[in-house]
Amino acid sequence: MSALKPLKKAVLPVAGLGTRFLPATKALAKEMLPVVDKPLIQYAIEEARAAGIEQFCLITGRGKTSIVEHFDVAFELERTLEERGKTETLAELRAMAMEPGSLVTVRQQVPMGLGHAIWCARAFIGDDPFAILLPDDLMLCDTPATKQLADAYRETGGNVVAIEEVPRERVNKYGVLDVAEDKGRLVSVKGLVEKPPPEEAPSNLTIIGRYVLMPEVIAHLARMERGAGGEVQLTDGMASLIGKQPFHGLRYEGRRFDCGDKAGFLEAQIAFALKRPDMAPAVREFLKRYA
C-alpha cells in the first residue's frame, strides 16, 4: 500500500439554524451555546487539534459571524485581562487562538443537506483526506474521538467513521452500517443506508458525527443527487466509495451527547461539570436537591 497522506484538514458544518433552541438561537449561533464555560464549536476545534489537525473549514450560513470572531484575537480584552492580573484566563484565551490562515469559512447559501455542505468545502479539501466534526455531537472521551479515528485511519487507510449501537427502533434517525465483518473495535463495511425503517435496517450500528473521509467522496456529492428527505446525503456519497477504498466503522471509546437536543444538551452540562475538579463537588451537592 502506498504511503498514507497525513490527516491535517477538518471540515465543520455550522450552517444550521438551531430552531430547536429558539428563542436562544434567534441571534446566537447554536454552535456558540456554552457547555459549562466553552461553546460547542470550541470543544470540536480542540478535539480536532488534539488529533493533529492544522487546517479548519467552517461551513457557515447567515448569522454565524460570532463563530469566526470567537477564534480571533481580542486585543482590548487581552489587554484588560493583563492589566487586571488575570493571567490564567489570559493564557486560556491565547491558547485557543488560531494560527494565521488556518481557519477559513465557506458559505452554504441554501440548506440542501449535509452532503451539500461538505461539497461546499471542495476547494479546501482538494486531494487530501479530511475529518468531519459535527459540533452538535459533543464527545466526552479520555482519548479525543477524532484522534481515535485518526489512529484508525493510519491503521486501515481509507475511510473511517465513528459508530455506536442504538436500539433498533431508533435507527431511522441515523446512517446505518451494513456489516461485512465485525472485528470488535473495527467493523468492515459493505454498505450504508440513510435513516432506514427499523424493519429494513441491516444492523443497529449507526454513524455519529465524526468521520475521516477520502477526497473522492466529493465527486459523488457533486452530482447533487437527492436522497432521504430530499437532501444531498453524505451517507450516499460515502456508500459510493465502498468496494473502491477501505471503509471501516470504529467503535469509539467514550460518550456522545446530542447537543442538538435539549435533554442531551442539559445532560452534557452535568457530565462535563462533573469532570471538572473545580466544579464537581458543588454540582454533586446541588444535584441532591433534585433527586
Score class of each variant (00 low, 15 high):
residue 207 I to W: 05
residue 217 V to G: 02
residue 199 E to I: 12
residue 202 P to R: 01
residue 219 A to H: 07
residue 220 H to K: 08
residue 191 G to M: 04
residue 214 M to P: 04
residue 187 V to A: 00
residue 204 N to T: 06
residue 210 R to S: 04
residue 195 K to Y: 08
residue 197 P to M: 14
residue 187 V to K: 00
residue 188 S to W: 13
residue 209 G to E: 01
residue 220 H to Q: 13
residue 213 L to Q: 01
residue 211 Y to K: 11
residue 199 E to K: 14
residue 206 T to I: 09
residue 215 P to V: 00
residue 201 A to C: 13
residue 208 I to N: 13
residue 183 K to W: 07
residue 183 K to S: 12
residue 201 A to Q: 10
residue 184 G to E: 00
residue 183 K to A: 10
residue 222 A to V: 01
residue 218 I to P: 03
residue 217 V to L: 11
residue 215 P to Y: 00
residue 217 V to A: 08
residue 211 Y to V: 09
residue 210 R to Y: 02
residue 187 V to S: 01
residue 201 A to E: 10
residue 204 N to Y: 02
residue 194 E to K: 14
residue 204 N to V: 05
residue 193 V to T: 15
residue 197 P to A: 15
residue 211 Y to P: 11
residue 187 V to E: 00
residue 214 M to N: 07
residue 194 E to F: 11
residue 204 N to F: 03
residue 211 Y to C: 10
residue 215 P to A: 04
residue 184 G to S: 00
residue 216 E to V: 06
residue 187 V to N: 05
residue 220 H to V: 07
residue 182 D to A: 07
residue 187 V to F: 00
residue 221 L to S: 06
residue 200 E to N: 08
residue 201 A to H: 09
residue 186 L to G: 06
residue 183 K to F: 07
residue 210 R to G: 01
residue 191 G to Q: 03
residue 206 T to V: 14
residue 222 A to C: 06
residue 209 G to M: 04
residue 190 K to T: 02
residue 214 M to Y: 08
residue 208 I to Q: 12
residue 217 V to W: 00
residue 213 L to S: 06
residue 206 T to Y: 03
residue 203 S to H: 06
residue 218 I to N: 06
residue 203 S to E: 06
residue 189 V to W: 06
residue 180 A to T: 05
residue 181 E to M: 08
residue 218 I to E: 05
residue 209 G to Q: 03
residue 180 A to V: 04
residue 207 I to S: 07
residue 199 E to M: 13
residue 210 R to N: 08
residue 204 N to D: 12
residue 196 P to E: 09
residue 197 P to R: 15
residue 182 D to Q: 00
residue 190 K to M: 08
residue 188 S to A: 15
residue 187 V to D: 00
residue 206 T to S: 08
residue 180 A to S: 08
residue 188 S to N: 14
residue 214 M to Q: 15
residue 180 A to H: 06
residue 218 I to C: 10
residue 218 I to M: 14
residue 182 D to G: 05
residue 186 L to A: 01
residue 215 P to Q: 00
residue 210 R to V: 02
residue 208 I to V: 15
residue 210 R to H: 05
residue 183 K to G: 07
residue 213 L to W: 05
residue 180 A to D: 11
residue 182 D to R: 05
residue 211 Y to W: 15
residue 199 E to R: 11
residue 220 H to R: 09
residue 183 K to Q: 12
residue 203 S to N: 09
residue 200 E to L: 10
residue 222 A to P: 01
residue 219 A to N: 13
residue 214 M to H: 10
residue 192 L to Q: 07
residue 197 P to E: 14
residue 181 E to Y: 12
residue 199 E to D: 15
